[in-house]
């Protein structure tokens, strides 16, 4: 690890100014659970690390029916899964927040950090993508709202321009009769990383048997977490049934071309996406039925 400067501003403006003034490479630090490991082992040259944990807007977790859920970019998982409105309305978010790392990691790791880290296996990204999240970004040029499916552009690369920072993630209020779930496969029960993951949100009609809308996100099977629109399309307008979910699972398998690496083979990932899609949709549907 090479030496670098460290700043801990308390406002967004200070942060933007710091970023624009620094000539060299700048990194933003929230929980640091990815960043510190990368600094220690990648031996990359970093000139300035800006700790954004102390900025109030980045720690907010706010919910109202009109604007939905706003998660500050630095809010740690443990605050997210202890938040009453999140517990009540966004089960997929709870699913992701409680499986990232382990208990100790969850006290530090943030959804914003998980998103900016842009790992193909980002659990929080998969969950938020299934819920149609919007990323609120600020830079010296002003404000941008980026749909989450456009935020990650390659492994470890996000859509932020130089001088921009992620402030918060906004997730629309759940529609009536809707349910969500995030499910991943890891060899270990904790302190592990997804071999494959699926996030799903499902909206049912008032009779609770037809799917009105669906969003499915697939994790760790492409260079970034991806929205599986073909899977959603296969579900919309259909009556829920075991065979429908099975068909959707098969479509999910066909839409991906995963790689083989140390964590799993391509064929294993393809197979797992099928299993996980079916199981994930099943639970999302059950949750939709339960909340209504």
């Amino acid at each position: 690890m090479k030496t670098f400067d460290y700043e801990a501003p308390v406002t967004i403006d200070q942060t933007i100014t710091l970023m624009s003034k620094t000539r060299g490479k700048t990194l933003l630090l929230a929980g640091g659970t990815d960043l510190l490991v990368q600094l220690r082992y990648s031996n990359q040259d970093v000139d300035l690390v800006i700790d954004v944990k102390g900025i109030p807007e980045l720690n907010q977790i706010n919910y109202d029916e009109f604007s939905g859920l706003v998660i500050g970019a630095a809010a740690p998982c443990s605050q997210i899964y202890e938040s009453a409105p999140v517990l009540e309305n966004f089960p997929a978010i709870i699913d992701a927040a409680t499986i990232i790392g382990g208990k100790a990691i969850q006290n530090r790791a943030s959804f914003g950090g998980n998103l900016c880290n842009a790992s193909p296996s980002g659990d929080a990204i998969g969950a938020m993508m299934s819920l149609g999240a919007i990323c609120n970004v600020v830079g010296s040029e002003g404000v941008r709202n980026i749909p989450i499916e456009d935020f990650c552009i390659a492994p470890g690369k996000n859509a932020l321009e130089k001088g921009e920072m992620l402030i918060s993630i906004q997730i629309p209020s759940p529609r009536p009769n809707s349910g969500s779930h995030y499910l991943r496969f890891t060899p270990r029960a904790e302190m592990d990383i997804a071999v494959a993951g699926v996030g799903a949100s499902i909206e049912l009609d008032s009779d609770l048997n037809k799917i009105l809308s669906a969003r499915i996100a697939l994790v760790a099977v492409a260079p970034t977490p991806v929205l599986a629109t073909e899977v959603s399309e296969s579900l919309v307008g259909q009556k829920t049934s075991g065979s429908l979910l099975e068909k959707a699972a098969n479509i999910a398998k066909e839409t991906i071309s995963p790689i083989t690496d140390v964590r799993g083979s391509a064929s294993q990932r393809k197979h797992l996406i099928g299993v996980l899609t079916r199981r994930c949709l099943d639970i999302a549907v059950k949750r939709a039925v339960q909340v209504s």
Partner: peptide
């Protein structure tokens, strides 16, 4: 120790 997997207390 991420990819060389030791069992955790939950395993």
């Amino acid at each position: 120790l991420l990819d060389y997997k030791l069992p955790t207390s939950l395993d």
